[in-house]
Amino acid sequence: MCHPWSDSVATLHMLKRFVATSRADAGAVFAQAALVVVRGAVSPVEVNEVDLEDTWHGLDAASQATWCVENGQVPGQNEALRQANQELVTVSSPSWYASFIAKTVPKGLPLVGVPFAKSHSDSIWFFAGCHQPSDGQPLRGRREHTDDVPHDGTFHIQVSGTKHWFLRPTDELVQRQGSGLRADDKFAIVCGPGDLIAVNTRLWWHETALPAALQPSVSYARDFYLQEDARAQEADFVNQDGFYAAAAISAGTIIVREQDMPDCELPTSKGSRANAQVVELEDEDGNGSGMALVASRDIATGEWFVVYDSDAESDAADE
């Protein structure tokens, strides 16, 4: 599989440290470095009973409104869902990768929680796609990033087809005592039907890709919490495109001017998470002034933009 990491992915024996022999053992592995894989966590019979089209038609309007393109060109929703439920799709089908969020847990899912979690989110995130390129190259999802989330991790169940995960630890995770990770570690993990991967996407840089295959790739995911009272911080799943750095940005750089600002609400913080501030600058033509978002410190590739909130009395997320 061609990927920027193809020449430096971890060897098999290095990956074994993240593999648990069963769902019951997954918690101990996850505790080491916020990542665990369980092969065959769900039986083939159970995953074969997941019907994505039936799930979709059972959703309310708010859930269906979350349909989102992850990458590629997505056909009409009904056609995409029909393809995702077929064992084989026609060669003429376009390559596509999409997601949607069920605001409540649908019936019929074989696994809706992991035993080492104290609680789980209300929402379930579904991913589906198929990829039949002429050149055999994979279909990459959203580019490498981390997620600004309050939960302790997200578990994904692969229902059909395969999905490739590319992961590398953040500096915070490398510095965690007992993680055993290095700053230059990079891992490539392939998940097939019935496999479970649980990962803290705040602590791991991550990216996924769909390999060239006739069988569609379908999976679902759910957030989990390791503490009883952590659900109080829960925010709804969001699968719309975020606003994060596509490349490294130096402190003082103008990220975007007011007229070019995307239609999304940026998170704010009074603490160290803040990496940008809104300032008034002279217009480029010198005939006036306007607001702009400027980097308040160096920002790494894939880091989400968080605006400094000078009016905030406190920031619970930074405590």
Rank of each mutant, 00 (worst) to 15 (best):
E46R: 08
T11D: 15
N85C: 11
P44S: 11
L109W: 04
Y97I: 01
D263R: 00
G113S: 11
Y220H: 01
T170L: 05
R182N: 09
P75V: 13
L139V: 00
A102I: 13
L281K: 02
T253R: 10
L81F: 07
V105W: 11
E228M: 10
A292M: 10
T162W: 06
E319L: 13
A248W: 04
W56Y: 14
L266I: 00
T11K: 12
A235G: 05
S95W: 04
Q175T: 07
R140L: 12
I255P: 11
L266C: 06
G180F: 05
D171E: 15
A65C: 04
G271C: 12
V38Y: 01
P4R: 01
Q277Y: 05
V38Q: 04
A65V: 01
N85W: 01
Q132H: 12
P193V: 00
T162A: 12
D283G: 12
E284V: 11
I254T: 14
A31Y: 03
A62Y: 09
E313P: 00
T55R: 13
A251C: 02
F127S: 12
A213K: 01
Q77G: 03
P44T: 09
L15I: 14
A312K: 01
I124V: 15
S99W: 00
C264K: 05
L15W: 05
R142V: 07
P169L: 04
F18A: 06
D236A: 12
G113V: 08
F126T: 09
P133G: 03
A292S: 14
D51L: 01
R176H: 07
V218K: 03
D311E: 10
T55G: 09
V19C: 08
A295C: 07
D195E: 13
Q233N: 09
Q83T: 02
F237S: 13
A230K: 05
T170D: 07
G161Q: 05
L52H: 10
A117K: 01
L293H: 02
L15Y: 06
L196S: 05
G161T: 06
D223G: 08
G192C: 09
T162V: 11
F166T: 07
H131I: 15
L35T: 10
L203A: 11
V74W: 03
Q77K: 11
M291L: 11
P193G: 01
G252T: 03
A34N: 15
V42R: 15
S250G: 12
G27P: 15
D60E: 03
L281I: 12
E49T: 12
A198N: 08
T90E: 14
L139H: 00
K186H: 07
H164Q: 12
S123P: 01
Q277S: 13
